[in-house]
Amino acid sequence: MAELKRFIVRRLVTFIPTLIGVTLLVFIIANLIPADPARAWAGGEKASPEVIERIREEYHLNDPWYVQYVFLMKKLFTNDIVSPRTHNKIWDDLIFGTSQGVAGAGTKYGRFFITLQLTLFAFLYIVFIGIPLGVLSALKKDSPLDSAVRSLALVGVSTPVFWLGYLLIYIFFVRFRVIELAGFPEPTQRITGIMVIDALLLGENDIAIQIINRLALPAFVLGFIGIGVIARITRNAFLETWNADYIEFGKARGLRKSRLMRHALKNALVPIVTVLGLQFGGLLGGAPITETVFGIPGMGRYMIEAIRNFDYPALIGGVLLFALIYMLANLIVDITYALIDPRVRY
């Protein structure tokens, strides 16, 4: 385990230059805009010069770019910088939640947690549809089901997420009104950060059902690409282990099929977990479009609004968080290897 600890520390240290690089890159992009951000933040053409000057002072916009960058990073570190667009502190918007909120409604939940919840729902679809489909397809190799599952992966990566979203909205909302598209109920108290879990913990079952009802379709849309990809990977990995010597041996010993399948699946898990980890990043990346289609006030929408309104502090904060989660997801994948497969050593 000591080796694993050293490995984790080493990986965490490499995060730092990457995070600096990422934020610097976005900072440079933001500075490419010739428009005057202070004017935009103050309310456009009609803004009074005093207000613009005050904003310039507040965000150090008159200083050279590296001073601006250091200032921004320092303030982000202490959560001391206010988004000029939402007038909330950036980490309050993204993580801690705000008392009086943006877009009409206050929320105890940060934008990140809304996206996280959506992503977790999508993950459930991927795991509980993708993996069984893959195993089934491997067991019935070369059957029509097998080719259907294999083409599902190709169709999945070829489908425009927004189009699938509208297709399902048309079917499930316009034709048969079985889902809800507006509103986002919240439990009365924030405990874990994931709304559904909080609602269940508080015993507010109707709110939990409303949330599930609201997220079922968007999560499916977000996870659609992943379902096919995971099914395909599971199929190939499972086929490989299903033909391995220890399974043959197990068959010879007369083990039950369910027992054999458990052995095979466990040994097939390494590639599956890798791709699941990569999918997590992909899900986050797909969030902006899915959230736009279904009107979910998550982190992806937040970033798009920030970009449209020249709100760099929020943009850079969001990018920092995105990059951090992305890298953490990869790290967790590497750690799970060691947990699943005792042969992996660091």
Partner: peptide, 21 residues
């Protein structure tokens, strides 16, 4: 290391940022 920076977060977000500026 430069590619690491670009691959450290979703391409869509980065593309949005560039395309908007």
């Amino acid at each position: 290391r430069i590619t690491d920076i670009f691959l450290a977060f979703p391409g869509l977000i980065l593309a949005i940022a560039f395309a908007a500026t």
